[in-house]
């Protein structure tokens, strides 16, 4: 079953409604309601569009009556219903949990990933969704480190977004709905990885591609006065295509992978078993101390300490 024979498009981004503090799915955290209708009960993030008015928000939520809210119509579909699969999936749950591994042993800091991304997404040069930092070790050595969005399992950017414009798909991608973002930039304050870039003026114009209207997984062109960030080319993944940075890295540093099927691949066509690759090469995650549980692993390989080396942009 090849993706090219059987193209699968995102019919709609699956939004796993996230709960505060944990990032657990609201469906799991809220006892009430059916699986597809995240309840509004105490503490559960209200489903988008599930509330029609402020009075309803305050009153209904205070009454903690999730059932009453079903009247307003749930938008989220049951997760399994629109889970697309390209490689066959296990019987339940999302087919994939995307992850990345960056093998820093091979990174020479050429920034080809940054440029591939900026070209694909029509970004201004300052909008480095994947940004290559040059790190200096305590001993004075340097190495390079690319920083895409870490697609945190516990994304602080999501928790602080007041209107749920930042959301997380059930395949683990944190995306921004730029047609909903109010431009408050709280997410930029919250992201420990500085992965978010605002559109402070007009976005760079982009040629319209027929059949590809702007969506959270294809945020092109960007929207003025809203926030944008690396999306791991969420439009490509379901089609079995590699993200622009992965394909664009001539050194094969960046692996895109899937925790569920335990497979990862880089732009040179090297395929690895993800868990084994991370384990055997002592993969670490960046700034673990913030409790964000990133979906990106780094393989330092030269004994670098990602978390204490100083960097220059």
């Amino acid at each position: 079953m090849s993706a090219s024979e059987e193209p699968v498009r995102f019919t709609g981004i699956r939004r796993a409604e996230q709960n505060l503090v944990t990032g657990e799915d609201a469906t799991a955290g809220c006892p009430s309601g059916d699986a597809g209708m995240p309840g509004s009960g105490s503490g559960c993030k209200l489903s988008r569009r599930s509330l029609l008015g402020g009075a309803a928000a305050v009153g209904a939520a205070a009454a903690a009556s999730a059932a009453a809210l079903e009247v307003f119509g749930g938008s989220a579909k049951p997760a399994a219903a629109d889970t697309s699969s390209t490689a066959g999936s296990s019987s339940s749950g999302p087919a994939h949990q995307w992850a990345m591994v960056l093998d820093l042993r091979n990174c020479d800091g050429c920034k080809a990933c940054t440029m591939a991304c900026q070209q694909r997404h029509s970004l201004w040069p300052s909008q480095e969704w994947i940004k290559v930092y040059t790190m200096t070790t305590a001993a004075g050595g340097t190495y390079h480190m690319a920083r895409p969005c870490q697609m945190c399992e516990d994304p602080p950017c999501l928790y602080v977004c007041p209107v749920g414009a930042t959301f997380r798909t059930d395949e683990g991608l944190v995306l921004v709905d730029q047609d909903a973002c109010i431009g408050c930039r709280t997410c930029m304050a919250a992201c420990p990885y500085e992965a978010r870039y605002f559109n402070w003026g007009d976005p760079k114009p982009a040629a319209k591609i027929p059949g590809m209207p702007r969506s959270p997984d294809w945020p092109v062109p960007q929207v003025k006065d809203t926030v944008g960030k690396c999306v791991w080319c969420a439009d490509r993944l379901p089609k079995g295509e590699l993200p622009a940075c992965v394909a664009g890295c001539p050194m094969g540093v960046i692996y895109i992978g899937d925790l569920t099927t335990d497979v990862a691949i880089n732009g040179l066509g090297n395929v690895v078993r993800l868990s084994e690759f991370i384990r055997d090469n002592d993969g670490v995650r960046f700034q673990e101390e913030y409790g964000t549980s990133p979906r990106v692993w780094y393989i330092p390989g030269h004994g670098q300490d990602l978390n204490s080396d100083s960097a220059t942009a």
Partner: peptide
């Protein structure tokens, strides 16, 4: 699943409280 996502998670014991 090859790697469970729960295994990759930092525990958040205060979630229920929140």
């Amino acid at each position: 699943p090859g790697m469970s996502t729960a295994q990759a998670n930092t525990p958040k014991p205060l979630a229920t409280f929140g």
